[in-house]
């Protein structure tokens, strides 16, 4: 069923974008991520799957240091993006997050106009020289978010007035507007209906041309549809990582197999 994906990933680039080694995450005494090492490729969609509470979101949030905002959270080990340690003392997490964009589980547009939602990132990072520049960036981002046609006539109306699926695509447009190199998505479709989900999935596939996309999902079908690589997490461990097709057809670990066949859930 995944011949296309398997074929593509065999041909795909093998440049490593993110490389994590021996990552441990603690929430106080709770050891949430245990010894995770993974190489995430550029221009590839990598899916994190696993039962809920296994640490997918936690690990994803390590990649742009969103965990820094949680007081009790402690991260050790090394995570390198383009061979630079993102937990180095000299790294400013704010600069990192401009490079590693994030889309959240619940659509969270700012309660501002659609235009301002998308323009906010470019504005604070000084990506536009003038108004015309900014207009262009906003339009390009909204086109890449596959929502331009729906909102081009009402850019000044509030982003919170859109439907759930539109809001999520707006959030994706907002994330790509800052020209990140990596796009992290934490269950981006969990609040969406099937039609909106299909639109977002299609979008993810297109985004792969420009970014390294990491997507957390609880839906195995979704992982199979959109990703080339899949990592299976279980109780804080990364149990198995490989080509999506291979994970779903011939899993190596019994835990992966029982999850895929629906015995752990």
């Amino acid at each position: 069923m995944n011949d296309k994906n398997i074929m593509e990933s065999h041909m795909g680039t093998t440049a490593i974008k993110i490389s994590a080694r021996d990552v441990q995450v603690y929430y106080g005494d709770n050891h949430a991520i245990k010894d995770v090492s993974i190489d995430i490729e550029d221009k590839t969609v990598t899916a994190f799957i696993g039962p809920s509470g296994c640490g997918k979101s936690t690990f994803l949030r390590c990649l742009n240091r969103m965990n820094d905002t949680i007081d009790i959270c402690k991260v050790t080990g090394s995570i390198r993006i383009d061979d630079e340690d993102i937990y180095d003392r000299r790294v400013d997490p704010v600069q990192l997050r401009a490079k590693v964009g994030m889309v959240f589980q619940k659509p969270n547009p700012f309660p501002k106009s659609i235009y301002d939602n998308v323009a906010y990132g470019p504005r604070i990072h000084g990506l536009a020289q003038n108004k015309a520049d900014l207009d262009e960036i906003v339009e390009r981002a909204l086109r890449r978010g596959a929502i331009w046609n729906e909102v081009k006539d009402r850019l000044q109306s509030p982003g919170t007035g859109l439907s759930g699926g539109q809001q999520q695509r707006l959030c994706i447009a907002r994330a790509v507007a800052t020209e990140p190199e990596v796009l992290l998505m934490d269950e981006p479709c969990s609040a969406l209906d099937p039609i909106a989900t299909a639109q977002v999935e299609e979008l993810i596939d297109e985004l792969r041309q420009s970014f390294s996309v990491v997507i957390v999902t609880h839906s195995m079908q979704q992982a199979a549809r959109v990703s080339q690589k899949t990592a299976f997490f279980h109780l804080g461990n990364m149990v198995e990582y490989g080509e999506t097709g291979q994970i779903f057809t011939t899993p190596q670990d019994p835990r992966t197999e029982s999850y895929i066949t629906g015995r752990i859930g």
């Binding site: 704010v94 997050r97 964009g101 994030m102 547009p109 994330a175």
Partner: peptide
Amino acid sequence: DAALGVGA
């Protein structure tokens, strides 16, 4: 989160 996520 949204603001931090776009690098604010």
